[in-house]
Amino acid sequence: MEAFINEFPEVLQAFGYTVLLFLCSGVLSLIGGTILVAMRVGPIAVLNKAAATYVTLVRNTPLLMVFFFFQFAAPKIGINLKFVDVHIGSFDFTSFFATAVVALTLYTSTFVCEALRSGVNAVPLGQAEAARAIGLPFSGVMREVVLPQAFRASVPPVASTLIALLKNTSVAAVFGVLEAAAQMKIMTNNHADERWGIFLGVALLYVVLVELVSLVAISFERRWRIA
């Protein structure tokens, strides 16, 4: 445990990357998932199929493979994020970070889409019919009536998805981002006799972070309960 305490600033910095990865890809996944679900439940057959195919393709692929694709395969066909090189305070946002955000976002969006779709299915059909009956176009029906209620109904599954995302950020450790899991690997290498304490400390911090996400989800559930 001594190493964990001595190197706590490094641990915090690493968890900073974990949180930043989570926040960036979390926000983008919520936006992406919302767009995907609008395409999936929308009236345009082409968009419908496109979203369904995308979800099937990406959701059924291991996250590690999505990372591999963007790290090694995508550059071969001209897709790379080498232009990303931003430094803010002690944090470096390089192409490794950007690639991780892209991979996590594309992967998590599919799960957000399906979580939101469960929420859309929970909204009674009559709500959409009433919205159409007052003359709202499809976009208005979704924005004003269906999605707000779908979001409420899908807080628990979306929270689960985001919790999975928070833990999935550890895959970025393999691809050049010095986040919590990578830091843990370095520390267990340097202090082989203290591995037990290091594992426990890092695991506890993950537990605390996930618990924070749960608490935010619960507060949203409470706030939206009236309807």
Binding site: G126, Q127, P137, A227
Partner: peptide, 25 residues
């Protein structure tokens, strides 16, 4: 379909058996 249909629906009031008031509003 589309905008023209939405526009026409605005001219027709509809009252449903199950009310269908927007539950979150």
């Amino acid at each position: 379909e589309g905008k023209a249909l939405a526009k026409l629906r605005a001219e027709v009031g509809m009252v449903f058996q199950s009310f269908n008031l927007f539950a979150h509003k």
